[in-house]
């Protein structure tokens, strides 16, 4: 006799997004350690008296009771474990928070990506916990790139394999790393990268988080790092990332208040 599939299951998960469905129902996208990324229906979510709505906002870490459905599974109960209110308290934190959720979504396919749950939870906790946003999100980006097989090459020339001094490096997001100036003819798209930025990126790739928070990163360097990494993430994902654009726009507002010239 074959074993019957259970009709309900429970899991802890992070809500990474919502979209419209029929009537007041919405489709919730969750990332769970056991099931990876999964789309589930939440009925009546748009009704004012919905008991689920407040527990299923994007970025909420929650405990879910789910009923197996014919096409999509259905959320029966939801209980917030952590809402990360601090990460939603100001525009800069919130945009980085949304960017982290967007990356987790784009780097995982349906029913895969369970291994991204802990890195996502960690980065959200760090954003909410007051750690430097730049370090938190760069570490997360490197974890995503490593786990998906797109680890950038930052020490050797991606064309000839020679060691690349930070001062002689040119950045190629399409080829996924740095290239020596004499090898420029052999790579597709290149952009400049300062030696300071490259040294910090190398540290982000190799060092532990506790060591990374000790690195002093000023506003202009932070903008350059953000621009380089966002370009790389868009190239790897082969799509525009509106969340990255929003992070840069809001960060630029902050920096412009400090009278720093915007890099071209």
């Amino acid at each position: 006799m074959t074993e019957r599939r259970p009709r309900t299951y429970s899991t802890k998960a992070i809500v990474i997004g919502q979209r419209d469905y029929v009537d007041s129902a919405r489709i919730i996208t969750i990332l769970s350690p056991e099931f990876g990324k999964r789309e589930i229906v939440a009925r009546g979510l748009l009704k004012p008296k919905s008991r689920l709505a407040g527990h299923l906002e994007p970025g909420t870490y929650c405990q879910l009771e789910i009923a197996v459905g014919r096409n999509l599974d259905i959320i029966r109960e939801a209980q917030t474990i952590e809402m990360f209110r601090e990460a939603r308290s100001d525009l800069q934190s919130l945009t980085i928070f949304l960017y982290a959720l967007d990356l987790a979504d784009k780097f995982s396919l349906e029913d895969t990506g369970g291994e991204l749950f802990n890195p996502l939870l960690t980065v959200i906790q760090r954003i909410a916990g007051g750690y430097p946003h730049s370090v938190s999100i760069r570490s997360f980006e490197f974890e995503l790139l490593d786990s998906s097989g797109f680890r950038p090459v930052l020490d050797q020339c991606i064309h000839c394999g020679s060691d690349v001094p930070a001062e002689d490096a040119v950045w190629s997001p399409t080829d996924g790393g740095v290239v020596l100036k004499q090898c420029l003819d052999n790579v597709q798209r290149v952009s400049s990268i300062s030696s300071r930025a490259l040294k910090v990126l190398r540290a982000y790739q190799e060092w532990d988080f506790d060591q990374l928070v000790t690195i002093a990163v000023d506003s202009s360097l932070e903008l350059e790092l953000s621009s380089v990494m966002h370009d790389l993430m868009k190239t790897v994902l082969e799509r525009e990332l509106k969340s990255a654009n929003l992070v840069e726009e809001v960060r630029w507002w902050q920096v412009s208040n400090d009278h720093v010239t915007k890099p071209n």
Partner: peptide
């Protein structure tokens, strides 16, 4: 009063 609604509100406020 959703996450996206709050982000939009903060953006507008700014």
């Amino acid at each position: 009063p959703s996450t996206e609604g709050e982000a939009t509100a903060m953006y507008l406020s700014r």
